[in-house]
Amino acid sequence: MKHLRALLVLLHVLAVSVMAFPAPVGAMSKKDWATPELQETFQGYAGALRAVGLPVSDEGLQAWLWEAGNDLLTVRKAALAPFRPYLELTGSEQGWRMFGTVNRRPAWLVVEVGDGQDQWRRVYEMRSDEHTWLREQMDQERVRGLVNGYSWLNRRKSYDQLSVWLARRASVDFPEASHLRIAMERRRLPAPDELRTQGMPAPTRHWETRYSLDKYR
């Protein structure tokens, strides 16, 4: 009995360990690798390796990492296959990738309503104390998790779906408005000195979409 118990405990430990083994899951796309954040990261690592005397070029390191990353994912997939049903059934299939990279160019979700004459009134802005429409919902951590993806300018389809949901709500909450405009305002987060002296830089607008609210009334 004690040997069977030890075997089962060991299998659980193995399953959890294989699942958690560091791997670039969901990160092996050329589009993601081209982002400034990752490019800076690769350059930083290549520079650090050169600083200790290793003759590594930025491009050479990236090519090697691309190949190694794909190989690792192939091995991981095969190693994980026998454990997957157990991990999925027991809700233990998480690989612990949390805050691996920090978003230095995040985007803030903003919502504005208008009268059709190109006069817009901002009603919601992420984390604002001034523009607080639906703040209770939008501040809830599940919705934060959702919008966090948009903050990286990822998940465009989901963003459009949420926009339609917001337009539906706005058609009820703002009977005087005829249109809704939603966008992601992106800012480069400043270094400490710059933040102290100049504050946050002006944003650039992305993913701006307009909706006629009459459609939802």
Partner: peptide, 14 residues
Amino acid sequence: TTGVQKLGQDWMPW
């Protein structure tokens, strides 16, 4: 595993 996957350069000395 969370720690070893914090590979962004902001976590590093450089």
